[in-house]
Amino acid sequence: MQLERYVGLLYRAQVALADAFRQVGAAHRDEPDVFFMCEQQAAVCDNHAGMLAVVTAAEPAARFGGPREELLRDLHDLYLMAAECDLCWTLVGQAAQGARDERLAGVVARAEGETSVQLAWLRTRMKQAAPQALVVAD
């Protein structure tokens, strides 16, 4: 069954996203809302990875390549990583139902909404930053 490989992919994506939230947050301490929210969301990702570790073998994940120190681009990177997690949750959720795996389906039900919130927050924060960053700032 390929499902297990996909759960592993999702697990690694969650671990990488937690790492990325932490690194981006630390790089933008002067944007206190970004710093605190990144810390908060890193903990959400830790929790997701922890739930997945119960149902799959925890494999080492790739480290985030490091922030670019440019707020909009860093949030953009986080968005793409969160989008990968979001897609994985959808697919794993579908497959878990097909496999009649109630435990895995339960994990998906608890977590996928939180990843959607991360995407919505990143989109909101980027919309706020974009006009000033792209049109006004030097």
Partner: peptide, 10 residues
Amino acid sequence: GQDLSTGAEN
């Protein structure tokens, strides 16, 4: 509306 935990906009 907004998400209460993050401020993300609907």
